[in-house]
């Protein structure tokens, strides 16, 4: 076990962590942050996407012990925050979710795309979403939601 200090959704904690525990399992099983979902556990589906020091990462292929001193944000940490509330609303309005299992990871990725591409084209959104699997929607609603959320966020800045 390795004592690890990290910040999760703004709260700094220090906890003994088994080295083999993935960040996803740590969040879900030790911190009860179950909004981060596991769809494949080998970095290929994107359901477990969280933010690590402001970057999107797959929490199933991150060791929790390697997060010493780092800042983690999960979907739970984005409640009542801009711009995620805007993105959430567009996901709702564009029917960007069906079963909802991919949704938290999709939202984390969507926010990252909009941050890096304030005016994302259809093809940019598609290629940036590669590796985020949604089995239900066929992606149409997700792409439309990211496009329109980006526009609203852009307009608010201007």
């Amino acid at each position: 076990m390795t004592v690890t200090h990290l910040t999760i959704n703004g709260e700094t904690i220090s906890q003994d962590i088994n080295p083999r525990e993935s960040l996803a399992d740590f969040l879900r099983e030790r911190r009860n942050l179950t909004g981060t979902h596991l769809g494949c556990e080998h970095g290929a589906c994107g359901a477990c996407t969280v933010s690590l020091d402001g970057m999107v990462v797959r929490s199933c292929v991150v060791l929790a012990v390697m997060c010493e001193g780092r800042k983690i944000e999960t979907i739970e940490g984005t409640r009542k925050s801009e711009p995620m509330d805007v993105i959430r609303r567009h996901f709702h309005e564009k029917h960007a979710l069906q079963c909802g299992f991919c949704t938290p990871g999709m939202l984390m990725m969507a926010r990252d795309i909009i941050a890096r591409y304030p005016e994302p084209s259809d093809s940019v959104i598609r290629s940036q979403l590669s590796g985020q699997i949604c089995r239900c929607t066929g992606y149409a609603g997700i792409i439309a939601a990211i496009e329109s959320a980006a526009r609203e966020i852009r307009d608010a800045v201007e």
Partner: peptide, 15 residues
Amino acid sequence: EDRRHLLGASTFVAD
């Protein structure tokens, strides 16, 4: 049914 999923507050069996 969207709200709970969008908040990451749904309950799947693993939760």
